[in-house]
Design a protein around this nucleic acid. Structure first.
Length: 332
DNA sequence: GGGATTTGACCTGG
DNA sequence: CCAGGTCAAATCCC
């Protein structure tokens, strides 16, 4: 009986995933269209009448997605619910947060695993693994500041990799419930460099982070590195790597936090336009730079995160632009 | 002494 | 079942 409901739940979750996907693709399309229209308008100096219609249609489609997703939301199946917002030829900050509230489990058992060995094999604080709603990766040599304080909470040998992966979370997690985490791993091809994967956005108060202590051990061997990046650090090889497409970043997508964190999310959204969330601003700028300058160095893709295997197709700049060109050609 | 890091165990999802 | 992510006691360091 329980397995039955589990089965149903997993099916429903798949449905939700698909819906969310569809919603994201529609949003991408919406942005492409809006971009195309704004270009077109600039070229011709005219206001295209069908632009409003197109946008309206897309908003309707997104609305359908969202309605369905919302229906499933009470079932606690929706890790990230996106609320589409009409594009007005503008780029709003993305407001996506990571999910993953800690599992409330057995009254918050936080057993000591070592002592427990041999005693009753109780469940250690079980948790829900984070769904990577918003991740991006930076390759950096040794970067000194990202404006956030991190605490290392784990290290792990990863299969087929030479160097272990270190896990960091925001120092303010206990006090402010900030859910931002990052993973740091040396690059095999260049051990001087680190691949830093940021997961989720800071919801903590940034003001007390002006004096940050970011120096942390990357691996137990010896290497010390500041595990951070700065917006204008040129070495950073950035890969927008999130379940959402990077295009989506440009539109304001509001994620409904499970339960009660609306205010917090709002804060994080608002923070994204300030220094509270450099990453967002950065992504935002880079993406549009990309649009404008066709900078080949940056690849945005819509892809699969490391462990949670969402089978998304990758879209890099070339694909995006060819898609865009095709659309423009057809539209002429 | 207190905060940060280390590290083995535990837990989850594929 | 396994790889990877997280927990938390032990340990380190200032």
């Amino acid at each position: 009986m329980e397995s039955n409901s589990n089965n149903t739940k997993s099916i429903q979750r798949k449905v939700v995933d698909d819906l969310v996907e569809g919603s994201k693709f529609t949003t991408q399309l919406q942005l492409l269209l809006s971009h195309r229209h704004s270009n077109h308008n600039i070229e011709t100096g005219s206001l295209s009448g069908d632009s409003d219609l197109v946008n309206e249609l897309i908003v309707k489609i997104l609305g359908c997605f969202h309605k369905t997703i919302s229906v499933l939301d009470p079932l606690d199946l929706v890790p990230d619910v996106y609320v589409p917002v009409a594009v007005e030829g503008s780029r709003n900050a993305s407001c996506v947060d990571d999910s993953a509230a800690p599992a409330s489990c057995n009254g918050g058992d936080s057993g000591d695993s070592r002592k427990r060995l041999g005693v009753s094999k109780g469940k250690r604080g079980c948790y829900i693994r984070k769904k990577r709603s918003h991740t991006w990766t930076v390759e950096a040599k040794r970067i000194d500041e990202d404006g956030h304080a991190w605490r290392k909470y784990g290290q792990k040998e990863i299969l087929n990799t030479k160097f272990p992966r270190s896990y960091f979370r925001c120092t303010h997690k206990p006090t402010q419930g900030c859910k931002a985490t990052k993973q740091v791993q040396k690059l095999e091809r260049d051990p001087e460099m680190f691949q830093i994967t940021y997961i989720g956005h800071h919801t903590c108060n940034v003001s007390d982070q002006t004096q940050v202590k970011t120096e942390t051990n990357i691996d137990s061997d010896n290497t010390l590195a500041a595990t951070s990046f700065h917006k204008d650090h040129v070495n950073a090889n950035v890969q927008e790597q999130e379940n959402d497409s990077s295009v989506e970043v440009a539109t304001c997508m509001v994620k409904q936090e499970e339960n009660n964190n609306d205010d917090q999310i709002k804060d994080s959204c608002e923070g994204s336009s300030t220094d509270g969330d450099l990453s967002l601003v950065w992504q935002d700028e880079m993406m549009f730079d990309d649009y404008q300058h066709h900078d080949q160095d940056h690849h945005y893709y819509h892809g699969e995160t490391s462990t949670t295997s969402h089978q998304f197709s990758f879209i890099d700049n070339d694909q995006l632009f060819s898609l865009f060109d095709t659309y423009c050609a057809n539209a002429r």
